[in-house]
Structure formats: structure tokens, C-alpha cells
Amino acid sequence: MSLNLTQIERVKTITKVDFYNNYVKKQKPVVVEQLVNDWPAFAKWDLNYIKAVAGDKIVPLYDDRPVSHTEGFNEAHKKMKMSEYVDMLQSGPTNYRIFLYNLMKEVPLLKFDFKWPDIGLRLIRQLPMLFFGGENSKVFMHYDIDYSNILHFHFHGKKRCVIFPQSETRFMYKVPHALIAREDIDFDNPDYEKWPALKNAKGFVCDLNHGEMLYMPEGYWHYMKYLTPGFSMSLRAFPRNAMNLSKAVYNILIMRHYDVFMRKWKGQEWIDYKNEQAVIRTNNKLAK
């Protein structure tokens, strides 16, 4: 079975006014195909270039193993040199990904390859985070802790993005005290007998090619799959909606720390409890 997904609208180029009025104000996703054609990165950024300028950097890698109480928040599963990791990506499928990595801090040269787009969002002027993945590697379904508006740029190859607005959270088997859906759901081919609420969820999908940008509105759930080896960069803007901003503050100041405390105190029992509650709470909402 497949998810109930609509193709995300695409435009080749867009003005600041049109982007703000038609997408940011309406909180509607869009793919802009030629936003970065004048960036040096458009011509330069591929895996071989990253290997050449950052090959000696030690990078944190993550795979698709389930969350464990024995691991710290965003604790890496493995580390290796970037040159070795690029070789791994180019040699065949791998589950190892680089997640939320500030490579530009390690390699300042990369800062000169992109431009801050003047597109109607007040972007947070921290160095952008990069994400890398091998063929068929997946990023579990989640939404971001800060409810940001996200500009997600892809480079080298193709990446599939499946996204859902917060209005669909009641169908997503959200794990309580976390920002993720049940990790054992196959969002490529969901089992509706096991996860019946997903039949009601209405989302969006796109395949991003080199140089294309996906705008994800505040708090959107997203599941990413690398169809080929590649990497992406995200720029962010704080949520404009006051309710979303308050949820972001709660997530950062309270929820995250409470979850870390409970993991240390209860161990795997806490993880199992949350996964069980994800099903119970979703099914209760579905029954209503």
C-alpha cells in the first residue's frame, strides 16, 4: 500500500513577494528549481568536491537502528574520515548518514560557495547544517524541535522528500515526549492493517534534484530517502506562528531534558512505554 500523497507544486524561479504571499503566509510547501543557479555551489558541490576540501575531517555517522536508552541525544553510531565516507557512498548502498553536521565550521572555504537568499524569510544567520546519505538510506519520519520554516537545498543526485503538516499528527503514531513517529513503520510501503490511522494522513511528496530547494513550512513532518548518494543543506527561519513558537520553546527547554532524564532513570522500559503509547493514543484519536 502507498501513502496518500500529492506532488508538491514546482516553480522554476520566484520573487520574494510571491514566495512570501503564496507559500510562507499560506504555510504551503513548494519546490523552487533554479534558486541557486548563480551560487558557486551549483557548479562545484558534488561528493568529489567535498572529498577534496574536507577529506581529512572526522565526521559523525548515523544509521537506521532504533532509538536506544544507552545512547545520548544525537550520539553518533560511528566516526570516520570524510574521504573514507565519500568512498563508502560511491561504492554502493549504505545506511550510514551524516546528520545536522556543521561542516562549514570545519571547512570555512565552503561558506563562500552559497548565498543567503533574500526570499521573504528572516533566516537564522548561523552556519548552515549539512546532511549526507547513501543510496536507499532513510531519515526516519520526524519534525524539527524548533518548528522552523526550512529551506532544504539538495546537491548531487536525487532525494525523495515525504512531508506532512502538523494537522496530520493525530494519524502519524507520534511517540510521546519525542519528535518522531514509530520507527518500525515502513513509510515506503506502510502496513495499513498494523497502522490503520496512516490511511487518513494526507501529505506531500517530491523528488529533489541537484540544486533544487524545498520549502517546508513550520513543524512539517518529514521523511527523507536518498535515491542516489548525495547531500543537502538546510537554512532556517524561526516560526512566525505564536503557538508554534511556544511549542518550540517547550520542546527545547522542557521536553528534551525530561526525555533524557527518563531514559537515564527508566532505561529501555521508558522507550518501550513511549512506543506503546504512540499506538494507544493514535488509536484512541482514530476511534473518536
Rank of each mutant, 00 (worst) to 15 (best):
M129Q: 14
M129N: 12
L130C: 08
L130D: 02
F131M: 00
F131W: 14
F132E: 03
F132V: 03
G134M: 01
G134Q: 01
E135F: 03
E135Y: 06
N136D: 15
S137I: 10
F140L: 13
M141P: 08
H142Q: 10
H142G: 07
Y143A: 03
Y143N: 04
D144S: 10
D144T: 06
I145F: 06
I145P: 03
D146A: 12
D146P: 03
N149S: 06
N149M: 06
N149R: 09
N149L: 03
I150C: 06
I150A: 08
I150P: 00
I150V: 14
L151G: 03
L151P: 02
H152F: 15
H152L: 14
H152G: 04
F153W: 05
H154C: 07
F155H: 08
F155T: 08
F155A: 11
H156I: 11
H156P: 10
K159C: 12
R160P: 13
R160L: 14
R160E: 15
R160G: 10
R160M: 15
C161A: 15
C161D: 13
V162S: 06
V162F: 08
F164Y: 15
F164L: 08
P165W: 03
Q166L: 05
Q166N: 05
S167L: 02
S167C: 00
E168W: 04
E168I: 02
T169M: 05
T169W: 04
T169Y: 01
R170H: 09
F171Y: 15
F171W: 15
F171M: 05
M172W: 01
Y173C: 00
Y173G: 00
Y173V: 01
V175I: 14
V175K: 10
V175N: 01
P176L: 14
P176T: 05
H177E: 12
H177Q: 15
A178M: 11
A178S: 13
A178V: 05
L179Y: 15
L179I: 09
I180K: 09
R182K: 14
R182M: 12
E183S: 09
E183T: 04
E183Q: 13
D184Q: 03
I185S: 01
I185H: 04
I185K: 01
D186H: 10
D186I: 11
D186A: 07
D186F: 10
F187C: 02
P190H: 08
P190V: 09
D191M: 06
D191W: 10
Y192K: 00
E193W: 07
K194P: 05
W195C: 04
W195I: 03
P196T: 07
P196S: 08
L198M: 04
L198Q: 02
K199V: 12
N200C: 11
N200T: 11
A201W: 02
A201P: 02
A201F: 05
K202P: 00
K202G: 01
K202V: 12
G203I: 13
F204Q: 09
F204N: 11
V205T: 14
V205G: 04
V205Q: 14
C206F: 07
C206T: 15
D207N: 12
L208R: 08
L208A: 11
N209G: 13
N209H: 15
H210G: 04
E212G: 08
M213Q: 06
M213Y: 00
M213K: 02
L214N: 01
Y215C: 05
E218Q: 06
